[in-house]
């Protein structure tokens, strides 16, 4: 991890994919951006965006962009089908009641799929992420392996997956914690 990255948007995890009964994929290279502020919701709706109805919810809008509400005043956009960087005008959309969040740079993005992903996450996270308690469209801002994270359950290419966002500086640690937890579910692969 000491080598300098040529592209600042290049993931330190190199976009790796770990296939198996539980798959882990690095989406850090994909686009994401966000806004916070007292007028953020109204301004985004005025631009034509549909937003989740409540905090800690995630929705998919046409074009496959995921929109996540982290509070009444904070919204993140995740585009799993487009590579970074984001269009520069997004980062400059500053007004008095709304300012951009640089989540492209601040957070790493991992996607976990597989039938037993909830059981695997139970080894790392205190929040019940089983389908009965945490259904598609739910978001949890919590801790995983003692680091802060955002976990969202949504559909991606027809599959039920977890998006996990952690601070960029913890990307390698988070990946290793997930791979370690995943090992017992993927012995045959």
């Amino acid at each position: 991890m000491s080598e300098q990255l040529n592209n600042v948007f290049e993931s330190p995890l190199s976009g790796k994919v770990y296939e198996g009964a539980i798959s882990i994929q690095d989406y850090t290279n994909k686009q994401r951006w966000g806004f916070r502020g007292k007028d953020a919701a109204a301004a985004l709706r005025a631009e034509g965006w549909k937003l989740p109805k409540a905090p800690n919810q995630i929705i998919t809008v046409p074009g496959d962009t995921l929109i996540m509400a982290l509070s009444q005043r904070e919204f993140w956009f995740l585009d799993p089908s487009t590579d970074a960087p984001i269009p520069s005008d997004v980062d400059q959309a500053i007004s008095e009641g709304m300012y951009p969040l640089f989540c492209q740079s601040s957070h790493a993005w991992l996607v976990v799929s597989g039938d037993q992903k909830s059981e695997m996450m139970a080894k790392l996270c205190g929040v019940d992420l089983s389908p009965d308690a945490f259904s598609v469209g739910d978001v949890a801002q919590t801790q995983m392996a003692l680091i802060n994270c955002i976990v969202a359950r949504h559909e991606l290419d027809g599959s039920d997956v977890f998006t996990i966002l952690v601070d960029q500086s913890y990307a390698q640690y988070a990946l290793e914690a997930l791979l370690d937890a995943r090992a017992e579910f993927c012995r045959s692969s």
Binding site: N56, G126, V127, Q141, T142, Q143
Partner: peptide, 17 residues
């Protein structure tokens, strides 16, 4: 583990606070 209720996020381990 002691649990605290966050008004935004619901019940969470006290280590998150």
């Amino acid at each position: 583990m002691k649990i605290m209720n966050c008004p935004l996020n619901g019940p969470r381990n006290i280590s998150e606070f």
